[in-house]
Amino acid sequence: MTELPAVSEEEFRKVCDFLYRRTGMLFTEVKRYYVQRRIAERMASLGISGFTTYFAYLRSDADGEIEKFINAFTVNETYFYREEHQLRCLSSDLLNERVRAKRPGEALRIWSVPCSTGEEPYSIALWLLENWPEVDVQDIEIVGSDIDTECVTAARHGEFGQRALMRLTPALVGKYFVASGKERWRIVEDLRQSVQFTTANLMDPAETRRHGIFDVIFCRNVLIYFDDASRRLAAENLFECLAPGGFICLGHTESMSRISPLFEVRRFADAIVYRRPQGGLHD
């Protein structure tokens, strides 16, 4: 195991401030071991022995180190059909409501952000193909975005291990995946081509805006890593990217009501979601 670098209290604060300013992720003293472990891994991979040297290297963004450092802090573990109740809600309520609000022929746009290595946006595609009767008559655009460029590359590649597929039936795996090695499966080409992947930082309005307006946004288990001020900014960025009447789905431990008053709560049979009010800013 990599030895932990000597990091003083002040240095720890500095690196946490740096992460906060860049990403909105807030780490405090209780997460010190976690932070130091990430720093140690980066230092080991660069062959740097002192924290001060590494921090100077990081701040100068030598060889794209900032991106690599941030990537080390993003939590990427997920699996197909995670929080399946929200997918049920998507096909039984959310999309039907959005279809009624749209002009004929207008595409439904769904955003999975952050999308990690693609499990969520591919799950959405799979779920709709299997469970939404309208899937053949509607244009649906699914976009997956993540701040972590390595995740986005992996998502585009669309190859997964057994753990990621644990919630899928063998029939679904057989239908939408092809074996690609020992206990590895790759999403079929058609489905890979059906999801667009981009990089996006939820804290940067310019980055979120360029993705356009969505009908449904899945933003699960990321806002919990942000502090209050960052959560507010992220909520506003997401609000701006939602069509009036559009929905946002958060992780089951998260509550938009505690973050921002911009959204209204909608309770459906399968899930509680948040909605941009119809009388929104685009009226």
Binding site: L129, D139, I142, L191, Q193, S194, V195
Partner: peptide, 10 residues
């Protein structure tokens, strides 16, 4: 397979 008609509209 349905979903997106490529190329997706701007």
């Amino acid at each position: 397979m349905p979903l997106i008609r490529k190329p997706s509209p701007p």
